[in-house]
């Protein structure tokens, strides 16, 4: 790696890290899976890197009062293999298992992924479906906001200079909820061409709750509220699902690149939404 000169710090405590960030010039180094490739190409030229790997207790998954807290430095592999998440919030573990390849999952972190705000990242699809919240810390500030307020545009979040993601908060899944994450993979990078997360609850033979998160399709991941509305109250037949899934791309300005045209992406969003919802419905009790 032939990056531009930078200063490197490896703080041993959260306070120290936040102090270092306070100036606003420092950049956090988490798993480095997004940042380092950019530094190698000198597309990113941070003057000061603050490596969070020595800060204690920034990783790990804990349950507390109906919520699960996933520390920002928790790696994708830790999320994927966490017994707690697999039992109590399986959608997040499933999404993590689809990220990149084994090497990337061993290094990359949930905090880094959210902060980077890649429009095709896997986590946001699941986190939108889970109505997750993000806790942000800065010297003198500790705020927890909804994911939908956190992500604002392509590669853009509301995190301010010096602000750090501390953790991601997801609800403990109610028993009987069916979930699924389905992804069409771009074969070079492993990123999603489209990725769809679905959560379904049933009661009395009808879908009582539907949550659908979408990534890869548009400028940023989103919750497909239109699809959810069309599903809720139906019996969740194949026909209900197909109709609902078909509106997943409505109103979205779909991305085009050398890997997939906008038309194909939009169509695949509907196909994968259908598959994710179908799988979630069949798993819902």
């Amino acid at each position: 790696m032939i990056a531009q000169n930078f200063e490197y710090s490896s703080p041993a405590s959260l306070e120290e890290a936040l102090q270092m960030m306070a100036g606003g010039d420092a950049k956090i180094l988490a798993g480095g899976m997004s940042l380092i490739p950019l530094m190698k190409l000198r597309l990113a030229t941070p003057g000061h890197l603050v490596d969070l790997s020595r800060v204690p207790a920034l990783d790990g998954v804990t349950e507390e009062k109906g919520n699960i807290r996933v520390g920002a430095m928790t790696t994708h592999f830790q999320v994927e293999s966490s017994a707690l998440l697999r039992a109590r919030c399986p959608l997040l573990a499933a999404a993590a298992s689809h990220i990149g390849d084994m090497q990337v999952r061993n290094m990359g972190t949930i905090g880094g992924s959210l902060a980077h705000a890649d429009p095709a990242a896997d986590y946001p699809a699941a986190l939108f479906a889970l109505e997750a919240r993000v806790r942000l810390l800065r010297v003198g500030s500790d705020r927890t906001i909804a994911l939908s307020d956190f992500l604002v545009d392509t590669f853009t979040t509301v995190a301010e200079a010096g602000e750090m993601i501390r953790e991601v908060i997801v609800p403990v899944e109610e028993a009987g909820t069916g979930v699924s994450y389905q992804k069409l993979v771009q074969p070079a990078s492993g990123f999603a061409i489209v990725g769809i997360a679905a959560r379904i609850r049933k009661s009395g033979g009808k879908i009582s709750m539907a949550r659908v998160g979408v990534t890869g399709l548009g400028p940023m991941p989103y919750r497909a509220v239109g699809v959810e509305k069309m599903l809720e109250g139906t019996a969740g037949t194949a026909d209900d699902i197909r109709k609902a899934a078909s509106v997943v791309a409505d109103g979205v300005d779909a991305n085009t690149d050398i890997h997939a045209s906008a038309a194909y992406r939009a169509r695949m969003a509907a196909v994968y939404a259908g598959r994710a919802i179908q799988a979630a419905v069949s798993r819902a009790a």
């Binding site: 490739p37 771009q186 074969p187 070079a188 990078s189």
Partner: peptide, 29 residues
């Protein structure tokens, strides 16, 4: 057969300029 192609745009810019965009098959594929 399935994945690879060096793509240049009409101005001669190589668009598959890194492994993130040029898809060689991985072991799992």
């Amino acid at each position: 057969a399935l994945f690879e192609q060096a793509v240049y745009d009409e101005n001669g810019q190589l668009l598959t300029g890194e492994l993130m965009d040029y898809a060689i098959p991985k072991a799992t594929m």
